[in-house]
């Protein structure tokens, strides 16, 4: 790993100022960035640690019925603090990686990285989350722009993620046991005015919404409602862990399971 300067500001404003510098990059929990730097795939000159920023920590319910999650909140904290407010999200957070990864990794880091097999992007897209940065608010539907690509500008900080709390939700993760990421994962969220279904780990374009299933489940929220649908294998990821056809099949199976388990 190349050397860098380390700074740990206490406010978003100070972090944003530090990120104006040449080759400066935010550091969340480091669970992706530190391994990436060890491989010299990233070599920032300054790392701006966000974990000391109090306004980016914690989980609470807003007056508008949304779950507000600070951008530097760890997966373990979301698992604990969202448990009664939004159990579908707490269940997702509690199955990311392993306990040590969950004690460091943050929601902001996960959404900024947008790994095609990551879990949080599915929840953000399925809930129609708002991603608030130090500069603006971005709707989840506009935020995800393909594998490892997002609407974020260089040095832009995810300060908060707000997710409308569904009536019922569930995340089904089909584990890829070597990486402990999702081989394929599906988040189903049921609202008074409709259902949203987001799929991770499957498409070469990254996380996406399965709109046919959303329509079918919107009129009948039961696993049977999607039995007549099929998912095309076109554009699905092909690797040694699974073929495109296998992933397409998993999307439907996991969606059905998520509907049955939704609480």
């Amino acid at each position: 790993m190349h050397n860098f300067d380390f700074v740990k500001p206490g406010t978003v404003a100070d972090a944003a100022a530090a990120l104006q510098g040449d080759e400066a990059q935010p550091l969340g929990g480091g669970q992706t960035l530190i391994p990436t730097m060890k491989q010299r795939l990233a070599a920032p000159e300054t790392l701006v640690s966000l974990i000391g920023i109090a306004e980016m920590q914690g989980v609470c319910k807003t007056d508008a019925g949304e779950l507000s999650i600070g951008g530097a909140t760890t997966h373990a904290t979301v698992e604990a603090e969202a448990a009664s407010l939004f159990p579908g999200l707490a269940g997702l957070a509690g199955r990311i990686g392993d306990p040590a990864v969950r004690n460091r990794g943050t929601i902001g880091g996960s959404l900024a990285n947008n790994d095609p097999a990551a879990c949080y992007p599915a929840a953000a897209l399925a809930t129609g989350a708002t991603i608030r940065t130090d500069k603006r608010e971005i709707a989840a539907d506009d935020y995800f722009q393909g594998m490892f690509t997002t609407a974020l500008d260089e040095g832009e900080i995810i300060v908060e993620v707000r997710m409308p709390i569904p009536e019922k939700s569930n995340y089904q993760k089909f584990l890829q046991p070597a990486s402990r990421f999702a081989l394929t994962g599906v988040f189903v969220a049921k609202y008074a005015d409709g259902v949203r279904v987001a799929v991770t780990g499957a498409s070469e374009e990254g996380v996406f919404r399965w709109t046919e299933a959303e329509q079918a489940l919107g009129s009948n929220f039961a696993a049977d409602a999607i039995s007549g649908l099929s998912v095309s294998a076109d554009g699905m990821i092909n690797d040694l862990h699974g073929t495109p056809e296998y992933r397409a099949h998993l999307v439907k199976v996991l969606t059905g399971r998520a509907v049955m388990a939704a609480a």
């Binding site: 380390f6 740990k8 550091l27 480091g30 669970q31 530190i34 391994p35 790392l47 640690s49 974990i51 373990a76 306990p99 040590a100 990864v101 004690n103 460091r104």
Partner: peptide, 13 residues
């Protein structure tokens, strides 16, 4: 008090 992987945390953190 929390388990972490010391190879994936900076001493400065």
């Amino acid at each position: 008090g929390k388990a972490v992987k010391a190879c994936t945390m900076l001493a400065a953190e």
